[in-house]
Design a protein around this nucleic acid. Structure first.
Lengths: 336, 336
DNA sequence: CTAATTAATGTAACTGTTTTCAGTAACTTA
DNA sequence: TAAGTTACTGAAAACAGTTACATTAATTAG
């Protein structure tokens, strides 16, 4: 038989209501009785039953985290940040991997609602378009919803993200500062916000520096290693090859480096910049230069923010935008 | 006001008990009333309250997954397998990252128990020694506990793991078959089961082939990229350098490759084998050869197994041991 | 010194299920 | 035809907390 609030009440010679008050330190309980009750609680090592509590409070301190794919190395890095912060605040995480399927996502949302999570964090960029996101708009009317690295305009959804136009801009600018003028760009599917923005930043940097856009330098691939690999092969097949390659994700960059090495070149021949700054990047190919999106910090901030929303604290803004920074390592060389 | 079982009962003109029976398809309910009730349930889109249910059943279909560090890329790969399988069975995952801290682990165990998870999966190798594991032995008396890639002898703990002695043996043997006789080994801390076993396999392979053990070739480092990097630097500094390097983890291997390239060499000069087969390995440095521990499958199997234990199905064995296999890629060259 | 507050505590209703126990009606069996 | 099964259903008691309301004692105001 587990220990209940009744056992505590009996042993401490008070009513169960009083015990409950001590537990929730709600309303006034005299110091004397409070101490007495707490002593008994400690003695019997009593833990209130979450279900009974949840039945009334409709919550048991949990957050759902929905992400598209655990194999995308950016996500574990973010989750670690979320986890660290939530653990401090005594929240637990329900982890949901959707495999990029909207159907699976919807199913998860349903279960998370049934399990009465206090809030839901969506990880990662989303396909644009009303149909793909309206269920989230609806969701955000029911409970706190936060998106990492994306947002939904005019909704209740909170966001923590970096300015990706600017991130791409900085990367390209860095190339330019090193003397590169022929800059390839291996991007992902521009139906996703993130890749749309990066393309914008890429173009803007070229424009601002009066470099004409070469359409052949812009390549759309899957945003993983394979995409980077294929992208580089394409770029290498051009008559007028680029000297620098900007990639829309770190994993594209990894694949790109792989292709570069495999083709007998090195970063002396082709400079590469990735995007995201996943932890492993520092340890590969002598260190890959990348745009730092602060994955860990983003996770922490997201967790912190959603807790504030849950606690009904007023926030100045629905959307927190971080400034990305270049993490300069060894994969870019100056053109001489 | 949420819809309750009472609303259904009323609308369907039956008692709440009957509705509950339909919900749990327990005991006999006439087809007629069953249909009637189900129709109303669907109509009102009724979902039973998990907390009320949990209060009685003491469970709400969740599994805790405790892991040492999300930055270890092996784990996300395993978690994906766990997740996929559990989702099919309508279980959710509480994700707990301990940062290798036993204190944090214990705290998590406490919360998981309070939240009445149906079982707990521990991910990853553990420090040996009674003190570090007795709380898990205790735990396994209370609810189903499963360990991935480790086990606790003589306990209730279930395990899914690979034969790591044999895995190491196969790696070293492969080197030998390529003509290598000077084989370095960058290992982790042998206080952890996994590294102890790998060392054993390494030594056994040498012995069986009558190659004397060179103590200088065995290096202990942290089992991440940094360790591989430093390990290679040490090996390179030897007068009699090895020609092949076996590493106790894929991340060590990555760091090793990094150091090899940085020192102006390639896998033509030093053959490398990793351990684990994390998804990214195929995409790095033209593909790294490694010992495949089947991370995804391991996760799936673990999930499947713990569900069976929860459902009280009889298992033939507490310990499932998979045979590791070499994933041969491009990082090993024959000695001519 | 009485009336009005206020602080501290208790009683009991309520949260939304599952499940035991009991009851009814229909159907066998002797 | 009476008694015993069986199939189905309902009433009510759990499950373990929170909280609205009531009550008492102590304090303050007039």
């Amino acid at each position: 038989m587990p220990i209940t609030i009744r056992d505590i009440a009996e042993k401490a010679n008070v009513s169960i209501a009083t015990v409950s008050r001590v537990l929730n330190n709600s309303s006034q309980v005299s110091k004397e009785t409070k101490d007495k009750v707490e002593k008994v609680i400690k003695e019997l090592n009593f833990k209130p039953n979450v279900f009974a509590r949840g039945l009334i409070k409709k919550s048991i301190n949990t957050i759902g985290v929905i992400l598209p794919d655990l194999n995308n190395l950016f996500y574990p890095a973010v989750i670690k940040g979320i986890e660290d912060e939530l653990e401090k605040q005594n929240y637990n995480i329900f982890l949901c991997n959707t495999d990029e399927s909207i159907t699976k996502e919807k199913k998860y949302i349903k279960t998370l609602l049934e399990k009465h999570v206090d809030g839901i964090i969506f990880l990662g960029t989303r396909p644009t378009g009303f149909e793909n996101n309206k269920h989230i708009v609806e969701l955000s009317k029911k409970l706190p919803v936060l998106m990492i690295n994306d947002y939904i305009i005019g909704s209740n959804v909170y966001s923590v993200m970096t300015d990706e136009v600017n991130g791409a801009y900085k990367a390209v600018n860095y190339f330019l500062s090193l003397g590169h003028k022929k800059i390839g760009f291996i991007n992902g599917n521009v139906d996703f916000t993130t890749y749309k923005y990066k393309l914008r930043g890429y173009k803007k940097a070229l424009e601002d520096n009066k470099i004409p856009l070469n359409e052949k330098y812009v390549i759309n691939e899957t945003p993983y290693e394979k995409g980077g690999y294929l992208g580089v092969k394409k770029l290498l097949s051009l008559k007028d090859r680029p000297t620098a390659i900007f990639t829309a994700s770190d994993q594209i960059a990894i694949g790109a480096m792989n292709a570069i090495f495999e083709s007998g070149y090195s970063s002396d021949d082709f400079s590469v910049i990735g995007y995201g700054d996943i932890p492993i990047l520092n340890e590969l190919y002598s260190g890959l230069t990348t745009v730092n999106q602060f994955p860990y910090y983003t996770g922490q901030l997201a967790a912190e923010t959603i807790i504030k929303v849950i606690n009904q604290e007023e926030l100045k803004q629905r959307k927190i935008i971080l400034e990305p920074e270049l993490s300069i390592r060894k994969s870019c060389k100056a053109l001489i």
